[in-house]
Design a protein around this nucleic acid. Structure first.
Length: 426
RNA sequence: GGGCAGUUACCAGAGUGGCCAAAUGGGGCGGACUGUAAAUCCGCUGUCUUCGACUUCGGUGGUUCGAAUCCACCACUGCCCA
């Protein structure tokens, strides 16, 4: 259990670390927590790193606590936000909390026979019983406004144009209280999180020191960015979610497979449990022939298996191979079985009758919901971004008819290079 | 409550009576080149069935042949004062 920090260090998963943290972890089985915001009904891959911190922690023999912010979610974390956020309704929040809880459960081991069994808590459970007066007298009294204003998350907003509500200003105290509560009730001595959480975390350790005279520790992991400066985890379709209903395992796999070389080399350390030597070997092999994209393949495999399981990974891989391995081959070479078993790409159905009569492409593309409007479809087509059965379209007047059907049943539509749609005529 | 500044498309930000669906940059999407990469170059980026039409510049009214632009009121935001 001693090499936990070292393990994270070589993986590049430690940004800031409080002095004494390593010693604490070496001394005894330590309980540590990470908080998750219920801002949506699913976690996305941005939350994957904190989850991995907990998994690494448990692997190293320590006890992980995953906290879902039922209470903090009602306040709104100002960290990294340039503007005040809208509050979620309680109803939505409760639903999100339930969803996020469910997702977290699959990554940690909750077996109660383990000395370091994972635990899942909701900070609403202890906040619901605390009155406002109680809170400002017992907790607020220990932290000065001067201290709170010095935090980056607050300072930026004070200097910026949009200001900050009292609600969001209070956030760090509320989160700090979580740590204090867990320290006293669960003997939790360590908090982890993204580096944007550093300020909030430190308020927690400060509160523990001033209120109970105890010592608590913390470290943060760097926020993941793409080497080109873009936002991590976003694609044209939005966030990459962990929920397979929102992001299919195939799309999930594709996201990792599309990582740039530079990103993949860093990400494989952070997002997989592959050992150091093996990773170095993969990187080396990758460099001898980058076009094989060994790095990306290994990365995508490991993460997809971790989140969706091996079976879903196999399907995603199979779909990938069908769609990409023989790109030059005519679409006709795909068998009925191939087409029928393609998983994870967007499928839509279309009346067979209409195809037999012949439909104009633009109608076809909008009526299958591949495009929202004819204008959008037209622009894409004129830009050369649409293929049907792997043949690029150039004619707006084209009529889609029976001749386009593969095996009398399917039409494979591509938007751009990577976005596939399978239209089933029936 | 008083004073000042502001509110423009996904974001930032120009535009201060007609030439404005609105400069520019970023982001996003598509294309070429590649390796389903990066860099580079090119195109698209309010809505709609192309030409063209329609709806936008915080809201509501008004002035005007004509308003993002002028006026009035309201709302919101920021800064300063009480």
């Amino acid at each position: 259990m001693s090499d936990f920090i070292n393990e994270l260090k070589w993986r590049g998963m430690i940004q800031d670390i409080m002095p004494g943290t390593e010693e604490q972890l070496k001394k005894e089985i330590t309980t540590a927590y990470v908080g998750f915001d219920p801002t949506a009904d699913s976690l996305h891959i941005g939350s994957l790193v904190p989850i991995l911190l907990l998994v690494h922690l448990q692997k190293a023999g320590h006890k992980p606590i995953a906290l879902v912010g039922g209470a903090t979610g009602m306040v709104g974390d100002p960290s990294g936000k340039s503007e005040e956020r809208n509050l979620l309704s309680e109803e939505v929040l409760n639903y999100n909390v339930a969803c996020v809880k469910k997702q977290l459960e699959q990554f940690l081991n909750f077996d109660p026979s383990l000395p370091n069994a994972a635990e899942l808590v909701n900070n609403y459970d202890w906040f619901k019983g605390i009155s406002f007066l109680e809170f400002i007298r017992d907790t607020g009294k220990h932290i000065t406004v001067n201290y709170m204003m010095a935090k980056d998350s607050v300072k930026k907003r004070l200097e910026g144009e949009s200001g900050m509500s009292f609600t969001e200003f209070t956030y760090q105290l509320v989160q700090g209280y979580d740590f204090y509560w867990l320290y006293n009730n669960k003997n939790c001595k360590l908090q982890m999180g993204g580096s944007d959480q550093w300020g909030n975390i430190v308020t927690g350790t400060e509160l523990i020191r001033r209120k109970s005279g105890g010592e608590a520790f913390a470290f943060t992991c760097p926020l993941i960015k793409k080497s080109d400066g873009g936002k991590f985890g976003k694609t044209e379709k939005g966030n990459i979610w962990l929920d397979p209903q929102k992001t299919s395992p195939y799309q999930f796999y594709q996201f990792w497979l599309n990582a740039s070389d530079e990103d993949a080399a860093g990400w494989i350390k952070i997002f997989t449990f592959i050992g150091r030597e093996e990773i170095e070997q993969i990187i080396q092999q990758h460099q001898t022939d980058p076009s094989q994209r060994l790095l990306q393949k290994n990365l995508a495999e490991a993460v997809t298996v971790f989140v969706h399981g091996r079976e879903e990974y196999e399907k995603a891989l199979e779909t990938t191979q069908k769609l990409f391995s023989n790109q030059k081959a005519p679409a006709e070479s795909l068998s009925v079985e191939d087409l029928e078993s393609i998983e994870g790409i967007v499928k839509s159905s279309y009346p067979l009758e209409k195809i037999q009569q012949g439909t104009e492409v633009l109608n076809f593309l909008t009526e299958t919901a591949i495009f929202e409007s004819k204008g959008a479809a037209r622009k894409m087509l004129q830009n050369g971004g649409i293929s049907i059965n792997r043949t690029k379209l150039s004619d707006i007047q084209l009529v889609v008819n029976s001749a386009h059907l593969l095996h009398d049943k399917f039409i494979l539509v591509q938007v751009g290079k990577k976005n596939y749609y399978l239209v089933v005529a029936e």
